[in-house]
């Protein structure tokens, strides 16, 4: 192996690592706020990737109908919960968020798809279709059980993952899809050719992480989400609805998943079940970050990406095994070093 190959592998690893970083950060976010270990994160990657690919091919993606269905179901859940105290205001509010929003997205899709509006519009449309699925899913599957144990929530998450994967097969079929690259540009950095696509991945990752940091550090809603993560009862006592925090966390996670999918679908062929493995690698990073530290998760994700790239060169059959084995020394070290953790302080 010479330097060029090494640099090539590093670039490749960092590109995947950047995507794992996004997914890992989303997993930490969802876990901190809702205590859900968000296995279906990978399905949002798949849905984002395939929705984008279908849109790029000039067709209407099935996820648009899924959005409408999920919105209607979430609306019914809301009606049932508030059946004894339905007010006009509540009804309008819920109908706007859960019925009108999917309708508007569907309308836009039908108008914009025949126009072949280009990858940037398709990217926004994909986010508009996949992003709201997060909070709807939270409303349907997790909110009714929000105070259950972490294990119960994990089992729910596995169920949702399986359901969404099956739904992916119905919506997109068993064939893999690939989208044309968003950017065909290519540069050379010394001996190393760098594709515009990987530059795009780095920029989007950095931009999203910066935006998330600003959101959590500067905005009231961001602080409210952190507060929910730190002390749920304390959050309720100042009037923060933990269900709202949960929906926002899921909306962010779904959007991050969709963007990750859009970033990888021009590079790799994505099948209905590809997202799961991609999501699990983000999960490895999140575990190394203790499901708590965002910077550690992001750094670990880059390491996961690089290890994966090197492993696929030296021992491609063992690639996945090597990547997932990373988790073992970390778990051993953590269990020795940290003893027992309490969720609530004081």
């Amino acid at each position: 192996m010479d330097l060029t190959i090494l640099l090539f592998l590093l670039q490749d690893g960092m590109t995947s690592g950047a995507i794992y970083a996004l997914l890992g950060v989303a997993l930490v976010l969802v876990f901190a706020v809702t205590r859900v270990i968000f296995i279906p994160q990978g399905e949002f990657v798949t849905y984002g990737a395939l929705t984008f690919a279908v849109l790029e091919a000039g067709q209407i993606p099935g996820t648009m109908w899924l959005l409408a269905g999920a919105g209607a179901l979430a609306f019914l859940f809301e009606l049932w919960t508030h059946r004894r105290e339905l007010t006009a205001r509540l009804l309008v509010h819920e109908a706007t968020l859960k019925l009108a929003l999917p309708a508007v997205v569907a309308g836009l899709t039908h108008v914009l798809v025949p126009m072949k509006a280009g990858p940037f519009v398709n990217l926004l449309l994909t986010i508009a279709i996949i992003g709201p699925l997060g909070p709807y899913l939270y409303r349907i599957a997790f909110q009714p059980n929000a105070d259950a144990s972490v294990l119960t929530l994990l089992i729910t998450a596995v169920g949702v993952h399986l359901a969404m994967m099956g739904m992916g097969l119905i919506l997109f079929g068993a064939e893999g899809l690939r989208a044309p690259p968003i950017s065909n540009a290519s540069f050379t950095l010394g001996p190393l050719p760098v594709s515009g696509q990987s530059i795009g991945v780095y920029l989007v990752t950095l931009g999203l992480i910066l935006a998330l940091w600003l959101f959590f550090d500067r905005t009231l809603m961001g602080k409210a989400l952190r507060a929910t993560a730190v002390n749920r009862i304390g959050a309720r006592l100042v009037g923060i609805r933990t269900s709202l925090s949960g929906r926002i966390a899921f909306a962010l996670a779904a959007t991050i998943g969709a963007i990750s999918g859009i970033l990888i679908v021009p590079v790799t062929t994505i099948y209905y079940d590809t997202g799961f493995i991609v999501g699990l690698k983000g999960f490895v990073a999140a575990i190394i970050g203790g499901l708590a530290s965002y910077p550690l998760t992001a750094a670990a994700a880059i390491v996961v990406g690089i290890v994966e790239a090197l492993a696929s060169f030296f021992a491609s059959d063992l690639k996945e095994i090597i990547v997932f084995m990373l988790i073992i020394p970390v778990l051993v070290w953590r269990s020795i070093a940290s003893g027992h953790h309490d969720e609530e302080e004081e």
């Binding site: 952190r226 507060a227 730190v230 009862i233 304390g234």
Partner: peptide, 13 residues
């Protein structure tokens, strides 16, 4: 508004 016995502050903020 309740100031609970355990205070329930946001310790890491």
């Amino acid at each position: 508004c309740l100031v609970a016995e355990k205070r329930h502050l946001f310790g890491s903020m």
